[in-house]
Simulated scan of single mutants.
Amino acid sequence: MMSISSDVLNEPQDRDAIIRMDDVSVTYDSGDSYVLDDVSLAIERNEIIGIVGESGSGKSMLASSLLDAVPDPGQLSGSVEYRPVQDQNVEVLALEDSELRALRWEEISMVFQGAMSSFNPTMKIKEHFIETLEAHNAPVETGLNRAHELLEDLYLKPGRVLGSYPHELSGGMQQRALIALSLVLEPDVLVMDEPTAALDLLMQQSILLLLRELREKYDLTMVFITHDLPLVASLADRLAVMYAFELVELGPASEVINTPTHPYTRALLNATPNLNAPLSEMRPVKGKSPAPINVPSGCSYHPRCPLDTEECRTNHPPADPVTPEHTAACFHWEEARTEISLNYAETGTNDGDWR
């Protein structure tokens, strides 16, 4: 485990969380433009949490914030606590550069969008593993043995993959090799930003099955970021729905799918193909999501919402509890259940068949 300065260790408040974000914001233009707005989220140890929303909703910025990797000139504020063990906290935003470099691979690793652009095309896959191991002063032979095991776990032939250049592998093989590379230093948390976006449906489903197996074998916590709600719904334990750079609904995946409460979540589900509704009943989300420089006052969704009132236009809704584990930031979430119908059967239970 990496060495962390004592001045960034604090007593934990929530013993079940491995990462806790409190009031995290990312701003540009001297604070005038928000691309992440006051997000608080506790990520539980060994869970898979899905972060979903339209393109431009702030999902990727949330991922970057977890690793203090917001590109300049973005300004990151708030608190991101990492809990390597249950009796200590690491304040990520207070780490020195060397500590932060270690954390990003050894403790929290990230799979970025597009495996094809993540590998150096002039280097064989084995060289990427060696370079990563040497950069973190890890034993190369031991690391390569782990790489072989990880590649086999992902149903790849280690000899062929490690001896290949990236362009000699298919997109699915590259993506799985990138997942293996992200796990070679045995991190506790794996953050994946649209990891299956460029893959066909069959390969997407295959990778989801492999991720479940990896979570169980290596006791991983996973943050899976995607705009594809059906994809992550079949994988995640919990879903966090983002709109206009903030969280608007959070809860167990089965509850968010089968009893969605925020008007945006219901609209998003109605715009998504599913096996229980004909294509003619799909309804696109009306209007456009706001730009960072033009976020509406009050509830950011009110210009697109059929339930908006003067209260919505002037006041920002708090995250109300729907159930003990399910929250929605909406003044009218109870009305949404009756006023905004779904194009599939709402079960009101945790055993619906939308997925």
Rank of each mutant, 00 (worst) to 15 (best):
211 L>P: 02
203 M>S: 06
261 T>G: 10
333 W>H: 10
314 T>F: 05
245 F>R: 14
247 L>I: 15
318 P>E: 13
237 D>C: 04
326 H>S: 12
282 M>V: 14
213 E>H: 10
324 P>Q: 05
324 P>R: 13
339 E>A: 14
270 N>H: 09
336 A>Q: 05
302 H>R: 08
234 S>K: 08
215 R>D: 00
242 M>W: 04
295 V>M: 01
309 T>W: 04
258 N>C: 11
209 L>N: 15
245 F>P: 00
226 T>G: 12
305 C>M: 12
221 T>Y: 04
307 L>F: 03
288 K>Y: 06
228 D>R: 11
256 V>I: 15
215 R>H: 07
280 S>K: 05
319 A>S: 13
298 G>N: 04
263 P>Y: 06
205 Q>W: 00
315 N>H: 12
225 I>V: 15
286 K>Q: 14
312 C>R: 05
273 P>V: 11
230 P>E: 05
313 R>T: 04
322 V>M: 07
246 E>S: 15
248 V>K: 13
306 P>I: 10
236 A>V: 07
266 R>W: 10
300 S>N: 09
201 L>H: 01
332 H>Q: 11
293 I>P: 00
289 S>R: 06
315 N>V: 13
291 A>V: 04
323 T>I: 04
215 R>G: 00
252 P>V: 08
241 V>S: 02
224 F>D: 08
232 V>T: 06
216 E>K: 15
338 T>D: 15
271 A>L: 13
195 P>S: 09
329 A>F: 06
204 Q>H: 13
224 F>P: 08
287 G>M: 05
291 A>G: 02
221 T>R: 12
302 H>N: 01
199 L>Y: 11
197 A>R: 14
199 L>R: 07
310 E>G: 02
257 I>P: 01
310 E>S: 11
216 E>L: 10
264 Y>M: 07
291 A>I: 02
200 D>A: 04
304 R>G: 13
315 N>T: 14
224 F>C: 05
218 Y>Q: 04
226 T>L: 10
293 I>V: 03
273 P>G: 09
273 P>T: 10
319 A>C: 01
282 M>R: 15
298 G>I: 02
314 T>W: 01
215 R>E: 02
259 T>H: 14
223 V>M: 12
321 P>C: 03
294 N>T: 02
234 S>H: 07
284 P>M: 07
202 L>K: 08
280 S>M: 11
274 N>F: 05
244 A>R: 00
305 C>S: 10
303 P>N: 05
208 L>K: 03
289 S>C: 00
321 P>V: 03
250 L>I: 13
322 V>W: 04
271 A>Y: 10
255 E>Q: 15
315 N>I: 12
277 A>F: 10
285 V>L: 06
313 R>P: 09
201 L>P: 01
300 S>E: 12
304 R>Q: 14
251 G>F: 13
325 E>L: 13
222 M>R: 09
203 M>W: 00
260 P>D: 02
197 A>M: 08
216 E>S: 14
196 T>I: 10
229 L>A: 04
207 I>S: 11
297 S>N: 14
209 L>Y: 04
198 A>I: 01
210 L>Y: 01
271 A>I: 12
244 A>F: 03
261 T>D: 00
206 S>R: 14
325 E>W: 01
